[in-house]
């Protein structure tokens, strides 16, 4: 795929990978993007509706309504995953159902359910973050880096910590 990889290939291999690339069925990028936009948009719209409902009737404020909204969406995604529906939605929606927080919940729930056969501790506990792990690891690392940069910038500007 990358240039570094093709350099290691022999001329015959390069010829063949070029042929294979030319015969590869084109991914319908426009259609996939449209689907991702619509389905992702709808999930966010649902989230907004839940948030507004919580503010209007649940006694939450604009600031505190975020957490319960996310929790409700996650619960919904886990139920759909358990019912065996979320993977079907995923094939249609692509990133549209993977990027929202529901996709994060799906990655946890699907791994947990799948590895139940290897036991509760090693299977469910050990494998739950099989897919979501990198998101947390690098999200945390990025947040740490941003925090350190802020710390340095503030020290340099001589302002309060």
């Amino acid at each position: 795929m990358s240039n570094k990889k093709t350099k290691n290939l022999t001329p015959i291999q390069q010829q063949y990978t070029a042929l294979a690339a030319s015969r590869e069925p084109k991914r319908s990028v426009v259609k996939n993007c449209l689907r991702a936009f619509v389905s992702g948009g709808l999930i966010c719209l649902l989230g907004e509706a839940i948030r507004q409902a919580l503010i209007a009737w649940g006694g939450f404020t604009a600031k505190t309504a975020g957490d319960p909204t996310v929790a409700i969406l996650i619960a919904l995604a886990v139920v759909l995953t358990a019912a065996g529906v979320y993977d079907k939605i995923g094939q249609w929606a692509g990133a549209g159902s993977a990027v929202p927080v529901t996709g994060f919940a799906n990655s946890l729930a699907s791994a947990a359910i799948e590895h139940r056969s290897e036991g509760i501790v090693l299977g469910v506990g050990g494998q739950m973050f099989r897919i979501a792990g990198p998101v947390i690891v690098f999200g945390t690392a990025a947040a740490f880096a941003v925090g350190i940069i802020h710390l340095i910038v503030r020290a340099l500007l001589g302002g309060a910590p």
Partner: peptide, 21 residues
């Protein structure tokens, strides 16, 4: 805000789809 929730949320997912495809 509903309209922008749909559009902005959809757009972020679209970026994800571009990463895939």
């Amino acid at each position: 805000i509903f309209f922008w929730a749909f559009v902005v949320g959809g757009a972020i997912c679209l970026c994800g789809q571009l990463c895939y495809d």
